[in-house]
Simulated scan of single mutants.
Amino acid sequence: MRQPDIEIYLKDASLEAVGDWLAQRLGACTAWQSRGQTQQCRAGGIPVVWLPRAVGKWHSLLLESDTTPWIDDLACARDAHAALGVEIRCAPGGWQEEESDEKGDHWLSIDAEGEREILWRTD
């Protein structure tokens, strides 16, 4: 089932590299607009939000659409890792606010060594 939006976390990725990757996958990006600490643009018409250092050294990338080329966070994370060569983390499936905090701490990590499930406490 397609997720309503896509969110991944990237380590050591530059906004410029992410913008180039998004332009290749989604279409041309508008200029990034600053809104507080976040940067926002539209890539191929899809609203994009970039929050640097959302969790420690990890940057959050949110694609606010269910019409991306990726069916879920994991598909996007795999593509981002292949294109950018940085470690990516994502939720293993959709997570709902009403679910237990413990389930919310289970993440997938994708890096040069492959994919693995990890426990990542983001609070």
Rank of each mutant, 00 (worst) to 15 (best):
P4K: 04
D5M: 10
E7I: 14
E7W: 05
E7S: 08
Y9P: 05
K11G: 02
K11Q: 13
K11E: 08
D12I: 09
D12A: 10
A13C: 15
A13Q: 09
A13E: 10
S14K: 01
E16D: 12
A17P: 03
A17G: 05
A17H: 09
G19F: 02
D20G: 05
L22A: 00
A23V: 13
R25V: 05
R25H: 02
L26V: 01
L26H: 04
G27E: 04
T30C: 06
T30A: 07
T30H: 04
A31E: 11
A31P: 11
W32Y: 02
S34I: 15
G36C: 13
Q37M: 13
T38V: 14
Q39D: 03
Q39T: 03
Q39P: 08
Q40W: 09
C41T: 15
R42F: 14
A43D: 03
A43L: 05
P47H: 00
P47C: 04
P47K: 04
V48E: 01
V49M: 07
V49W: 06
W50E: 00
L51K: 04
P52R: 00
R53H: 15
V55Q: 07
V55M: 10
G56C: 12
K57S: 11
K57P: 15
K57I: 15
L62P: 07
E64Y: 00
E64C: 08
T67Q: 12
P69C: 02
I71A: 05
D72G: 07
D72S: 07
D72C: 11
L74M: 07
L74K: 06
L74P: 02
A75Q: 10
A77I: 06
R78V: 10
R78M: 12
A80G: 02
A82V: 14
A82T: 12
A82Y: 06
G85T: 13
G85S: 08
G85L: 13
V86S: 01
I88K: 00
R89L: 15
A91H: 11
P92I: 12
P92D: 00
P92M: 01
G93N: 08
W95P: 05
E97L: 14
E98L: 14
D101P: 10
K103P: 06
G104R: 11
H106L: 14
W107R: 04
W107L: 05
W107K: 08
I110T: 01
D111T: 10
D111R: 05
D111I: 09
A112T: 09
A112H: 08
E113D: 14
E113R: 11
R116C: 10
E117F: 09
E117P: 15
L119H: 11
L119W: 10
W120V: 06
R121T: 08
T122N: 02
T122C: 07
T122M: 08
